[in-house]
Simulated assay, not measured.
Amino acid sequence: MTLCADFDALRASAADVRIVTSDGQSIAAHSCVLASASPVLERMIDRARRGWGADCTIRVLGVSFDAVRAFLHFLYSAKVAPEEEELVGAHGAQLLALAHAYRVGWLKRAAEAAVSARLTPERAVDMLKLARLCDARRLYLHCARLAAKDFSAVERSDGWRFARRHDAALQLELLQLLEDADQRKERWARERAAQEACRQLGEAMASLDHIFPSDGPARGDAPCDKAGCTCRGLQLLMRHFATCARKAAPGGCARCKRMLQLFRLHASVCDRPDKACRVPLCSHFKAKAQTEKEDKTWRLLVKKVTRAKVMSSLADRKVVPEVVVMSWTMYNGRVAKLR
């Protein structure tokens, strides 16, 4: 691939701007193209012409000649073709700095994506500092995520050793990012555990409805023929509750207390009339809830279990609504990124 096919035609035309790089080499360019591509270059060209006449020289320092040449090529083409992605990747960091300095937004986004795709733990600290200087939020988050994932490799990098000796602010910032990532993982783990508990409670409520249907006789200890049902465990727990002699003793029985909590939770989510519901103690807890005010924590638990019960019933359908599929996919995607 010819790096800058536009430059061949440029040499034969009247170029009115000269770009000088750090090593003293120069590249001819057109002011109209540069001014239309970058507002910063437009002001620099205007200032140079007002100060020194027709001769216009712009110095682009701090990056290599090849990076400046690639930068001008993309300014002329105004896009990154699929076959030019390797060129962006080869000069990604320098193109990102140039695009940020000269306010070429589309090229900055392309360079940021290229640097993020080729990021390694050894370069995470250097690219983190570059992302902070260039206000590249996507690259910044990618560096932080990579450092949290493989911090041992980051500690062995030259960038980390330099930050420890000469840039305490960068070191502190990276450590804070790692701490935030750990706290975020712990928070997500707690949320997943809470959601799993609510899902299990929702299944328990559905099992109670299955054991004590509103129409037809109660199943009692009869085995359940429903696939994946947890009725058997509840049947054993209710049998223990009916025969346990320790539930009235001081301290009580832990299993009986758990069964009472399930009965109370069922009464809170039950939408059947009092006479139509056959679950034990349902009417008792409903009447008690009308006379006593439930605390905020219990109301929140009831709300979450009701939501889990609804989601479980939707998941059991043969045709799941599209909004449920999209929500579940989005949730799993967010969790996978934090792992």
Rank of each mutant, 00 (worst) to 15 (best):
E292Q: 15
E292L: 13
F263L: 15
D274V: 11
R264T: 04
A245T: 10
H240S: 11
T243E: 06
Q290S: 12
Q261A: 15
E294F: 06
S283V: 13
P250H: 04
H284D: 10
F263N: 04
A289D: 07
A287W: 08
A287N: 13
P273D: 12
E294V: 10
M238N: 11
H240Q: 13
E294A: 14
R258P: 00
A254R: 13
D274S: 14
K288C: 08
K286F: 04
A254N: 04
A248H: 07
R272W: 04
C282G: 02
P280A: 08
Q290R: 14
L265H: 02
H240Y: 11
D274E: 15
T243Y: 02
C277E: 02
T291P: 00
A248M: 06
A249D: 07
C256S: 07
S283E: 14
L262H: 03
C277Y: 01
F285Q: 06
L281Q: 14
H240D: 11
K275M: 04
A289R: 11
A254T: 10
L262S: 03
F241Q: 12
M238Q: 15
A289G: 02
K293T: 12
R278C: 10
C277A: 05
R255Q: 12
R255V: 11
A245C: 07
A289S: 12
A248V: 07
S268Y: 02
R239V: 08
K286T: 06
Q290I: 04
V269M: 01
V269Y: 00
H266Y: 10
M259Y: 13
A267C: 05
A254E: 14
H266S: 02
H284V: 15
A276P: 01
R246H: 11
F285I: 08
C270W: 02
A287Y: 08
D274G: 08
L265S: 02
R264G: 05
G252C: 09
F241P: 01
T291Y: 05
P250T: 03
Q261F: 08
R278Y: 11
R278D: 11
C270A: 06
A242E: 09
C256V: 09
G252T: 08
A289I: 01
H284F: 15
C277S: 05
Q290K: 15
E294Y: 04
M259N: 07
A242R: 12
P273F: 05
A287P: 01
A276C: 06
D274F: 05
K286Y: 05
A287S: 14
F241I: 05
A287G: 15
A289W: 00
A289Q: 09
K288P: 01
R246L: 13
S268L: 10
R272S: 07
R278W: 09
S283D: 12
G251Y: 00
P280I: 06
A248Y: 03
H240C: 10
P250N: 04
D271I: 03
P250E: 05
V279D: 00
C253T: 02
S283Y: 04
K293F: 03
R264E: 13
C253W: 00
R264F: 01
P273V: 04
F285L: 08
A248P: 00
C270S: 08
R278M: 14
M238C: 10
L265Q: 03
K286Q: 13
E294C: 10
K288G: 02
A276Q: 14
R258K: 11
P250S: 06
T291H: 10
A248E: 11
V269I: 09
P273A: 09
L260R: 14
A248F: 02
